[in-house]
Write a protein that binds this DNA or RNA. Structure first.
Length: 937
RNA sequence: GCCUAGGUGGCGGAAUUGGUAGACGCGCUGGAUUCAAAAUCCAGUUCUUUCGGGAGUGUGGGUUCGAUUCCCACCCUAGGUACCA
């Protein structure tokens, strides 16, 4: 066998592992490079070909950086807490840790086969107590901090307490949801519970009531994801909105910095846009509308205070706390019915259903703060409780949703814009002149805005305000398989367990479901109470109301562990700190982060938030975790289908299926090759097909149909990398995954082309060997043409790597090998450089060829990236494409040194030009030297 | 609904700053080699055509000497939409 990839790859995998070729140490004499992958959740299905796409890209880039002399940190680990293992535990009773361990092992085996240059000594697992000890520790830091807007950073809570003790809270400028004001004296007079409650309103992680999708039948909270058409995906049970006491993260405090921080990171504009829109900064004013008969106030946030005279009704979210209070007897029944119906809808449904306008009048009226008019108060599900104040002042002439609502319910639409027709639609532009608005009439929108805000502030109705769509993030989960909180409740007051007793490890439970009283799964734990004297967990019976108290029953969400893991890789086994100062000072933030764009508003926002927080407290020296990011696209599966003739066991080939009534059936892609079904394998696939009969194409084959769709077990279209590594080798897989297309685009997985890449590697092998597989390499000066090929390739590979265009890089290698084969080049100098260039993409074969070129084993990983020399590429003639009216007609070979004028003269004089000019004089001639000639006739 | 991305031959894709549309690979067709096959090598391969040419990058319009590339409107597909990770 000539290119024996199996032998070669096995050899080098072993070599790298035994020699720890990719072990990384801090080295102050070398520039550092930190290349990171989003770590995987180890699912039971194992790694499929979509996973390695990003890993291969980052591995190529990390290897490239090593060749450039960087000290490279390139680690891998696992986001090993998560729902699937818990779901499996619920079904089978098997502890999620066991499932997870088994899955991890499989992932590792699969990863090992692909030739990644990870430093496995740095592996982390979020579900490992030695890891989540520090997740709990960070949670405690958040609990013990608040956000001070004067310092514009997080500050330890002790400083806030000190302020309360000396000045109360009136002069405190902090992010909070504290509704009362108090003096120092009052503060000191509050009891412990009251003080705790007030501090809770300032802490960066805090307990508060949040709306959740509650499914009473399942006794659990559901993600929007798990709800289909208003009922639970599992079981089809009804779901309702419920307020629940939960931990939240005061990420809102960081809204502005999360926004401005985007300017200094090198991410795609699309991800930045997604985050910007998610944060959703808007400026305007908060305004209080008094209710009729002194029944209180409705506070709204509006971005258009200038349109306040256009208000003709108000709308509250159905869940708004005032609704019950203000609804009149007459409308009570309808309002409650409406609230109930709205409560059954998910937030997403409510936002999507813009065509079905719904709402209900409450019978209550507010008083317009300027005109004194009576304004009806409605409830409507287009107003969301979680955004702004959960109430809007509706200005139908200026907002399309308000307009539609008004039309639907026949509410008056007041036009407050000069010379604007609103008979068909609202006028939502932020320009024009305001009319019919008393003191605002005649003003431009901008001036009216300023004046309206001034008047609102003057009358004490509200103030200018910046609002963010970003909501504080709920941090509690009613699940088992997550980090337990290091929290117990002493007389209902949450208390943190001291650092030296961390980690608080997950307790054993006999079942993983919620308890019968609807408590989270940890409610099933028997030993889940904290003794404040002995500082240990005790059995729940020991709870005594004096020194042994109940522990928190929720666990942390999936994003807790993943919000800081990139720091732990720097110092994975440190038992005293989450990361040592000198290590984080050396490695700094991630230079290149590769992962999916689907994390734009989750993980990527939370990780930034925690990083800024840790920066504020002086734990890390940077406030953005990921300097540069590339988002890899999803890999879709290509399913194959057979067509069963109705009510028979006969299968008709794709080309003839239209002649019959057929049912399309997914068929395992492993028994299909280039759409041709292996008929015998199909008969053996399942018993029911053993006696299958076939109607074949005229050439005697059975052709399958195909479709590109999500890769999934049930569709029999999952490609796992192991089979491909087995069949073609890891180097082929690596290059093929890159060759598929641009890294950032979704693309279908199809193994049809993998042969081409494999052939390329064989062709490369043949450059070094004769027909009998003996190494034949010539020494001495290289041929000029070969040098040109080489340097063209160096330039291309370098440029393509710099712009993360891995697919075009593979093409460049193919072109190079094709050209060198044509030249019969086996020159050592050329092949050496080519081997180094290729080594990031195909490391195993590169290692093998490198030793054949006479180098020491293993040294190619730290070789020097070849230098590009322009001189080998200089051309003295260029074939100008000559266009007439932009249409290319012929080429004219002319010296590159020729002036613009001479090119024009030469081209016009050519016989072919005369043909297209048809005797007429050209209207215009454009010559771009070294590029193109265009003649306008 | 909203936010983001994408749409180019039979297929994956290339065209980096507005300058030769279809690089490279697959597939397909024909040929060489072979007893035969595999492998390999060579040639061809956007569509259409009266063989002069004509059309062509989701659709319709615009800017330009010139548009896959820029602008406007629309259609389709994918991802996200706050408890999937």
């Amino acid at each position: 066998m000539e290119y024996n990839f199996q032998e070669i790859e096995q050899k080098w995998r072993k070599f790298w592992a035994e020699n720890k070729t990719f072990k990384t140490e801090e080295n102050k004499d070398k520039k550092k490079f930190y290349g990171l992958d989003m770590f995987p959740y180890p699912s039971g299905a194992g790694l499929h070909v979509g996973h390695p796409l990003g890993y291969i890209a980052s591995d190529i880039f990390s290897r490239y950086k090593r060749l450039q002399g960087y000290n490279v940190l390139h680690p891998m680990g696992y986001d090993s807490f998560g729902l699937p293992a818990e779901q499996y535990a619920i079904q089978t009773g098997q502890h999620p840790a066991i499932t997870t361990e088994a899955n991890l092992k499989r992932y590792r085996e699969q990863l090992d086969k692909i030739g990644f240059s990870f430093d496995w000594d740095r592996e982390v697992r979020t579900s490992d107590p030695s890891y989540y000890k520090w997740t709990q520790w960070i949670f405690k830091q958040l609990f013990n901090a608040y956000y001070d807007y004067d310092a514009n950073k997080a500050v330890v809570i002790d400083e806030l307490i000190a302020k309360f003790e000396t000045e109360g809270n009136t002069s405190v400028n902090a992010e909070h949801n504290c509704e009362i004001e108090f003096t120092a004296e009052e503060w000191k007079a509050f009891d412990a519970k009251k003080q705790s409650d007030i501090l809770m309103d300032y802490r960066l992680t805090y307990l508060a009531d949040s709306w959740v999708n509650w499914c009473p039948a399942l006794g659990t909270v559901l993600a929007n994801d798990e709800i289909v058409n208003g009922v639970s995906e599992r079981g089809g049970h009804p779901v309702e909105q419920k307020l629940m006491r939960q931990w939240s993260m005061r990420i809102k405090a960081y809204a502005e910095r999360l926004l401005t921080g985007l300017e200094k990171v090198d991410w795609t504009d699309s991800i930045k846009d997604i985050q910007r829109n998610w944060i959703g900064k808007s400026t305007g004013a908060s305004v209080r509308f008094a209710l009729e008969n002194g029944a209180g106030n409705i506070e709204v946030f509006t971005t258009r205070p200038d349109t306040i005279y256009g208000v003709s009704f108000m709308v509250l979210a159905p869940e708004h706390e005032l609704v019950a209070q203000i609804t009149t007897e007459e409308y009570k029944e309808q309002v409650e019915a409406y609230q109930k119906a709205a409560g059954l809808k998910s937030e997403r449904d409510r936002m999507s259903e813009t065509k079905n306008i719904s709402g209900q009048f409450t019978g209550a009226y507010a008083i317009h703060p300027f005109s004194g008019e009576k304004i009806p108060v409605w409830i409507g599900d287009y107003v969301l409780a979680s955004y702004g104040t959960g109430a809007v002042m509706a200005v139908p002439c200026g907002d399309q949703r308000d307009y539609d609502f008004a039309k639907h319910f026949d509410i008056a639409i007041k036009n407050i814009f000069e010379d604007v027709d609103i008979s068909e639609a609202a006028y939502a532009e932020k320009s024009g002149t305001i009319a019919n608005s008393d003191f605002l009439s005649g003003l431009e929108v901008k001036e009216a805005m300023a004046k309206a805000i001034a008047a609102i502030e003057e009358k004490g109705l509200g103030k200018a305000k910046v609002n963010y769509r970003l909501r504080d993030a709920v941090f509690s989960r009613q699940r088992y398989w997550g980090e337990p909180f290091p929290v117990y409740y002493e007389n209902g007051i949450p208390k943190m367990i001291e650092d030296e007793f961390l980690p608080i490890t997950l307790p054993e439970v006999d079942k993983y479901l919620p308890t019968e009283d609807g408590e989270p799964p940890l409610g099933n734990a028997k030993t889940w109470s904290w003794c404040i004297n002995k500082k240990i967990l005790k059995d729940n019976e020991k709870q005594n109301g004096t020194c042994t108290w109940p522990m928190e029953l929720n666990t942390m969400p999936g994003w807790a562990g993943s919000s800081w893991y990139f720091l732990r890789y720097m110092d994975p086994s440190n038992e005293n700190e989450f990361v040592a100062k000198d290590k984080v000072d050396y490695w700094q933030n991630v230079d290149l982060y590769i992962g999916g764009a689907e994390h734009a508003t989750g993980h990527l926002l939370y990780a930034r938030f925690w990083c800024k927080f840790l920066y504020d407290l002086g734990f890390v020296p940077f406030d953005e975790p990921f300097k540069k990011m590339i988002n890899q696209g999803m890999i879709l599966g290509r399913s194959s289908f057979v067509y069963r003739v109705k009510d028979t066991n006969t299968f008709v080939s794709f080309g003839k299926r239209k002649d019959y009534q057929t049912t399309r059936i997914h068929v395992d892609i492993n028994i299909v090759d280039n759409d041709k079904l292996d008929v015998e394998a199909f008969k053996n696939w399942r018993p029911e097909f053993a006696n299958a009969e076939f109607i074949l194409e005229d050439d005697g084959t059975y052709v399958c149909g195909h479709e590109v769709e999500k890769m999934s077990k049930s569709k029999f279209n999952v490609q796992n990398p192991d089979d491909l590594v087995e069949k073609y080798g890891a180097d082929t897989l690596r290059m093929y995954e890159m060759f598929l297309g641009p890294i950032d685009q979704a693309k279908p997985w199809d193994t049809k082309g993998i042969n081409g890449v494999h052939n390329f590697l064989r062709k490369l092998w043949r450059l070094f060997h004769d027909a009998e597989n003996n190494v034949v390499i010539s020494e001495g000066e290289a041929d000029k043409k070969a040098l040109k090929t080489l340097h063209k390739t160096i330039k291309k590979i370098h440029e393509d790597l710099e712009r993360f265009s891995f697919n075009t890089g593979v093409s460049a290698f193919m072109i190079a090998v094709n050209e060198l084969t044509e030249l019969k080049c086996n020159n050592k100098e050329i092949l050496e450089s080519l081997t180094i260039l290729l080594s990031p993409y195909a490391p195993h074969i590169a290692e093998e060829l490198w030793t054949k070129l006479g180098h020491e084993a293993g040294t190619i990983s730290y070789a020097t990236f070849p230098e590009f020399k322009e001189e080998y590429l200089v051309e003295d003639a260029f074939a100008y494409p000559v266009s007439f009216n932009g249409k290319m007609r012929f080429k004219a070979e002319l010296p590159t040194s020729m002036s613009k004028e001479d090119v024009e003269k030469e081209v016009l004089a050519m016989e072919q030009s005369q043909k297209y000019l048809e005797g007429k004089a050209p209207k215009k001639v454009i010559v771009v030297p070294g590029r193109i000639v265009n003649i306008v006739v």
